[in-house]
Design a binder for these strands. Structure first.
Lengths: 107, 107
DNA sequence: ATGTCTTATCGTAAATTTACGATAGGTCTT
DNA sequence: AAGACCTATCGTAAATTTACGATAAGACAT
């Protein structure tokens, strides 16, 4: 946790994880070999537009990616970013007790 | 990540981490042997009431605890819950991928 | 008791998030 | 070209979050 970019990333990831539906989506995606919006709509107690909105948030955070397979869109975990998020949280919880300088900007 | 209680806890922790000021507070608390509200107010670009509000959120999430040492209140990381959060995130990022079928079964 | 110091809470406005139905867009099939 | 299918986006209302100043609450000192 050395710079502001890491903090921003941590905040970004945390925000995305801060809703039970999005956790559910990620867990579902992680256990499916293939999964499109419609599948999630069928499982979640939400309107299609709302599910799409949550998918958009997860995509914006970098957790997932979509692949167009007409007429559907297959979603899956963005493995690289997933690992990055995992490392960020890990370092935060571990390394929060090692170095720190300025509270706002620890260059 | 077996039940809803874990998911709720994960969401609760994620929400608390979903704001840069709160990350800054946690990082600051983690490196101070002692730290009260006033110290944080002096360092953060926010009003006292706002800092107090963020501290309340962090306390609600379980990340921190306050000890009254008149006339101040000393805050510190709630170690037990901190470790619990760490474990939760770890299991979430790890355990979401107990199986990797992509090698055996494409799409 | 009064005043001081520190922090929490109240009241509020502005911004953001969440949810929905309706609609638009893109691709394939006929 | 028309229709069917799937998903994203738009417009929106309700709920939540964030920030502030003002005020209250608690403990000590005078």
């Amino acid at each position: 946790m050395k710079n502001n970019k890491d903090i921003d990333a941590l905040v970004k990831f945390s925000k995305a994880l801060g809703h039970p539906i999005r956790i559910a989506i990620l867990k579902h995606l992680a256990t499916q070999t293939t999964c499109c919006t419609g599948d999630l709509v069928g499982v979640l107690p939400l309107a299609q537009s709302t599910v799409s909105q949550h998918l958009k948030e997860l995509k914006k955070a970098g957790f997932i990616q979509g692949e167009v397979i007409p007429p559907k869109i297959k979603y899956c975990i963005h493995q690289e970013n997933w690992n990055m998020a995992k490392a960020l949280f890990q370092h935060f919880f571990d390394g929060c007790f090692v170095t720190n300088r300025s509270i706002i900007d620890d260059h």
